[in-house]
């Protein structure tokens, strides 16, 4: 992997470039760096935006100036994050596929030349790396959708897609964190709130973590929905060796 480069981004930000290709290793390295910087609690850093291949750091120059910050970051970037110790953190997202929860399931199946069952099996059979969050609060940019179920976006986007809808847009899949317009093909819905402004931690997941979609029946969906409403639902999280 190329050596990270620290670039100037104005008087209150620096951009660390880790590469110029979308690769899971690059993304893992960025997630590890974010973690490391958080642990170091460098005074003056106010926010971080990890993306596919870069990390933007916002800082307050009244607290730390450019040179001392860059020096600290350079020494942090020398620390090798050993891959063996890393754990994959996987969030299980229950999804009720098809029917009224996934009105475009037939479009996806037809486009793929597969049955709906096969589409569900393919979609729920792998863990998706969260490369980054952006666009909307908690909107996940997931990597690794099986090519067989890539489906072009709808020609006419919907004016309103309900929060929790799971869809496919081209080569990407994801969950709508809040009601919003959108052009993705809707294949199902989760009762889990990936974004809840009133929760202590409003956004459920972080870049560098994984999502696993687990098919559930409508009955289970309604039960989980009830539990979410009562605040008793716990999302299942797996920790696995990377």
């Amino acid at each position: 992997m190329q050596r990270p480069k620290i670039l100037v981004a104005g008087d209150s930000s620096v951009l660390i470039e880790f590469g110029n290709e979308i690769r899971p290793e690059t993304n893992r390295r960025i997630a590890a760096t974010v973690q490391l910087i958080r642990e170091q609690q460098i005074e003056g850093i106010v926010d971080m935006i990890p993306t596919y291949c870069a990390l933007l750091i916002n800082y307050d120059p009244r607290v730390i100036l450019y040179d001392p910050l860059v020096k600290r970051l350079q020494s942090l970037l020398k620390i090798e994050v050993s891959a063996g110790e890393e754990k994959k953190r996987i969030y299980e997202i229950p999804v009720c596929y098809g029917g009224k929860y996934g009105p475009d399931m037939d479009i996806i199946a037809k486009h793929a030349g597969l049955t709906e069952e096969e589409v569900i099996r393919i979609h729920s059979s792998r863990d998706y790396l969260i490369y980054m969050l952006g666009f909307l609060p908690g909107f996940t940019y997931l990597g690794g959708l099986d090519e067989r179920i890539h489906t072009p976006r709808l020609q006419t986007p919907r004016v309103r897609i309900e929060a929790g809808s799971v869809g496919i847009g081209g080569s990407q899949t994801g969950i709508y964190p809040l009601d919003s317009p959108g052009g993705w093909n809707l294949m199902g819905k989760t009762p889990v709130k990936t974004y809840d402004p009133d929760r202590e931690v409003p956004i459920l997941v972080e870049a560098g973590e994984y999502i696993r979609f687990v098919p559930v029946t409508e009955q289970e969906y309604l039960r989980i929905e009830e539990e979410v409403r009562n605040g008793t639902y716990q999302v299942t999280i797996h920790e696995e060796e990377a």
Partner: peptide
Amino acid sequence: IISDGICFGS
């Protein structure tokens, strides 16, 4: 570019 972070005044 591959999407990256934006700051105030970019």
